[in-house]
Structure formats: structure tokens, C-alpha cells
Simulated assay, not measured.
Amino acid sequence: MEKLSLQAKKAYFAKQRKSNYAASLRLEGFKASLNDSDHPLPTREAALNAVRQTKA
């Protein structure tokens, strides 16, 4: 397995932090325009099906 550089790790965590912040804003009812387009949100039905499958 190839080791990741420190720069790659920092970039990954910065991207995750930005994505989490945008999701938090959406949950609070704000419009988040932080370019979170590379991680589209699942539909309501897809999310419900995923939760139902993990509980079964």
C-alpha cells in the first residue's frame, strides 16, 4: 500500500471538514454554497432504505 504524503492528508481532511460544515448548515436550514457538488446527497428514499437495511 502506498503511503500518503502529509500534503495529501491535509487536503483530504480540509475537504472533509468543508463538506461536514456544509452539511451542518443544511441541517440548520441554511443554503450552503460551498461547492459540495462532488458528494451529492442521497435522496430521502435512498437514505431511508439504507437505514432500514442496517437495522434488519
Rank of each mutant, 00 (worst) to 15 (best):
M1C: 13
M1F: 08
M1L: 10
K3Q: 10
K3H: 11
L4N: 07
L4T: 09
S5Q: 06
L6N: 13
L6W: 11
L6T: 12
L6E: 15
Q7I: 07
Q7P: 03
Q7Y: 10
Q7A: 15
A8K: 10
A8T: 08
K9F: 08
K9H: 08
K9E: 10
K9C: 11
K10H: 12
K10I: 08
K10D: 11
K10R: 15
A11K: 12
Y12E: 12
Y12T: 11
A14Y: 04
A14W: 04
A14F: 05
K15C: 07
Q16T: 04
Q16N: 04
Q16M: 14
Q16C: 10
R17P: 02
R17V: 07
K18S: 07
K18Q: 13
S19V: 12
N20F: 07
Y21Q: 11
A22W: 00
A22T: 01
A23I: 04
S24R: 14
S24H: 13
S24E: 14
S24P: 00
L25T: 02
L25W: 00
L25V: 00
L25M: 14
L25G: 00
L27F: 09
L27K: 14
L27I: 05
E28M: 12
G29S: 04
G29A: 02
F30I: 04
K31M: 05
S33E: 15
S33A: 13
N35H: 09
N35E: 09
N35M: 08
D36Y: 01
D36S: 09
S37P: 02
S37Y: 09
D38I: 01
D38E: 15
D38R: 05
H39L: 14
L41Q: 14
P42K: 00
P42R: 02
R44W: 10
A46V: 02
A46H: 05
A47V: 03
A47E: 06
L48F: 07
N49G: 06
N49P: 00
N49I: 04
A50L: 04
A50I: 03
A50K: 05
A50H: 04
V51C: 03
V51N: 02
R52V: 06
Q53W: 02
Q53G: 02
Q53F: 03
Q53K: 14
T54G: 01
T54F: 06
T54C: 06
K55E: 00
A56L: 14
